[in-house]
């Protein structure tokens, strides 16, 4: 049952695909085909300038009329209409290097980010990328071209988990860097001090950004299903702990609930979309959240 009911954008299936751009494409196209309506319709493309052809340019964009007149190869360049700037802020700290259901949080988060980037750029919006651990590791300014998308994919593919999480500091810096108001999508397990996390998100909001937080956790982190005596080896330089999980379960779950409650309350107050995901959650949830948010921001911006 579970096998037959699986969606083509099931995280476990997607995770088997090595190339992140293929993953992103599978997610988005699988999602879009489910909508029965092409997301490409209704978007206009504006001609920008001619540029001399260089090897590797797509021959489809050769301007044959100019070639007929001047016998020189020019390609047409278009400026795609950019409606929205979406900054993807993705956590690649060591704590993301954890997964019990065959999917690491890291891979899941990157797939979410890649899929969003793919979707964003396919809708002629601009997508930027910030990878962070205890500091900002990689920044790609927003762009909407295919080349930019490839760079995003390349950055994502090259990101290995490591380093501690310091989300409060990172979000403050992102808020400073991203001047143009837009959509900031944070993909992280948010492990850290809840107050620092909330403070960072507030700063983004105070800069006028719409914020979506994809809170990615592993199912084990939510349910704590261990029975036998276990030596927990802490990531991000936390010490080891030998414990009887049954004895600690309730206290642990209480701690998780307290964190989530505080986060939910803060997000509600700041009108931040909080999407709680575990690595079993189908990836289209992330896309739906994005589209809903984009639609809302579009309405606010006076576009149909």
């Amino acid at each position: 049952m579970a096998e037959t009911a699986r969606s083509p954008i099931d995280p476990e299936i997607i995770s088997r695909v090595a190339q992140i751009h293929l993953r992103a494409r599978m997610v988005v196209e699988g999602y879009v085909s489910g909508l029965h309506r092409s997301p490409y319709k209704g978007f206009s493309v504006e001609f920008a300038e001619h540029r001399e052809y260089v090897a590797g340019d797509d021959l489809r964009y050769l301007d044959w009329k100019v070639f007929g007149k001047s016998d020189r190869y020019y390609v047409k360049q278009y400026e795609e209409e950019t409606n929205l700037v979406c900054q993807l802020v993705v956590d690649v700290s060591e704590s993301m290097d954890f997964g019990t259901e065959g999917v690491r949080k890291h891979d899941y988060a990157l797939t979410v980010a890649a899929s969003l980037a793919y979707l964003v750029t396919s809708q002629h919006d601009s997508a930027g990328l910030v990878l962070f651990d205890e500091g900002i590791r990689t920044v790609l300014q927003p762009g909407s071209s295919q080349g930019h998308l490839r760079r995003i994919f390349a950055s994502l593919e090259g990101a290995e988990p490591g380093g501690r999480t310091s989300l409060g500091v990172v979000l403050a810096r992102v808020a400073e860097r991203v001047r143009r108001r837009g959509l900031v999508v944070v993909v992280s397990d948010l492990l850290g001090d809840v107050n620092e996390v909330i403070e960072g998100l507030r700063r983004l909001r105070s800069r006028g950004h719409d914020v979506i937080v994809f809170h990615v956790l592993d199912p084990a982190e939510i349910e704590f299903p261990f029975e036998r005596m276990t030596l927990f080896e802490g990531l991000e330089q936390f010490p080891e702990l030998l414990a009887d999980p049954k004895a600690l379960r309730q206290a642990y779950l209480d701690g998780v609930s307290a964190f989530q409650d505080a986060l939910r309350a803060a997000c509600l107050g700041e009108r931040i979309d909080l999407v709680e995901m575990d690595t079993r959650t189908p990836l289209d949830v992330a896309l739906s959240s994005y589209l809903a948010k984009r639609a809302a921001s579009g309405r606010r911006g006076g576009r149909a």
């Binding site: 060591e94 704590s95 993301m96 290097d97 954890f98 949080k105 397990d189 492990l191 850290g192 956790l217 592993d218 982190e221 261990f226 036998r228 005596m229 276990t230 030596l231 927990f232 080896e233 802490g234 990531l235 991000e236 936390f238 010490p239 702990l241 030998l242 998780v256």
Partner: peptide, 10 residues
């Protein structure tokens, strides 16, 4: 005991 890498250590 079993060993378990663990992220939510805090």
């Amino acid at each position: 005991f079993r060993r378990q890498r663990w992220a939510a250590m805090e």
